[in-house]
Nucleic acid binder design. Structure first.
Length: 266
DNA sequence: ATGGCCAATATGATTGGA
């Protein structure tokens, strides 16, 4: 079972790259963020023709998330619980049937939060507190659970090429990192950090200032696993080569393999 | 040289991203 996440920065602009990447990486489940289109405009057919079921939750211009799954959805829920006034399309949860039981997956586009002295930052922190409440509830079920997406959090200095340049930024402020630790400390495992302590593992490089050419990146796209999922983790990867493709997203895909419901992979 | 981009929008300037 291969599960992946990718902030595509517009699904329409990235459709060809997404189809190429899916054919190469062959994930069974994919969490997408920043699709930037309403549900009626999502290019569903291109993915359905590859054998994926779709759950989309979009809005005009900004945000937007989607789930692709080769397995059927048992349940789909859109929107992060806890605030009826939050109309941003940033969250889909689905329960997916496998031969060995239910797998719960959420695609997450956590608010950026800049600039920090504004209501954008309080929205981010509130969203993180709601995410922790949600995760605490779901972890109590004792099931395999994966929270995957663009968290807009640089967890540690080792997750940035130039950490000093992020001091004071909403992605790296102490309060942001503390809320992320609160989430992790509920009992979630950061899949990349389960396999390596290496610095230099990035998932985002800004379009500006030659960030890619200088490898001035940050690791902000994460896959967090419940104990029942983490126990089955066999492999993790970051597809940084996708950043070299023509017309790239500023984020690259992250993926992992779980030793459940193994499928043929050719 | 300490800046350089990209995407969407009743679009040609502004907003959001990170």
């Amino acid at each position: 079972m291969r599960i992946a996440t990718w902030n595509v920065n517009s699904i329409k602009q990235r459709l060809d790259s997404a189809l190429t990447w899916l054919a190469e990486r062959k994930p069974d489940i994919v969490c997408l963020q920043e699709t930037k289109c309403v549900d009626d405009a999502f290019p569903r057919e291109a993915f359905e023709s590859l054998g994926y079921n779709l759950a989309v939750h979009g809005q005009k211009t900004f945000n937007g998330v989607a789930l692709l799954s080769k397995f059927p959805f048992d349940e789909v829920s859109k929107g992060l619980p806890g605030d009826h006034t939050d109309d941003h399309a940033r969250f889909i949860e689905a329960v997916i049937s496998t031969a060995t039981g239910a797998l719960r997956v959420a695609t997450i586009y956590l608010p950026n939060g800049n600039p920090p002295e504004t209501e954008k930052y309080s929205y981010k922190i509130g969203w993180m507190k709601r995410l922790s409440s949600y995760a605490q509830n779901r972890l109590s079920l004792g099931e395999p659970l994966i929270l995957a997406g663009d968290f807009n959090v640089i967890p540690e200095a080792a997750d940035a090429r130039n950490p000093q340049s992020w001091v004071g930024d909403a992605l790296f402020l102490p309060q942001t990192r503390a809320e992320f630790r609160t989430l992790i400390n509920l009992g979630l495992t950061d899949a990349v950090r389960a396999t390596t302590d290496d610095a230099g593992l990035y998932t985002f490089w800004d379009y500006q200032a030659g960030a890619w050419q200088k490898n001035n990146g940050i690791r902000i796209d994460h896959m967090l696993l419940s104990p029942q999922a983490a126990d089955r983790l066999t492999d993790v990867g970051i597809d940084r080569q996708v950043r070299t493709w023509e017309k790239p997203s500023d984020h690259v895909p992250v993926w992992l393999d779980l030793a459940i419901d193994e499928v043929e992979r050719t």
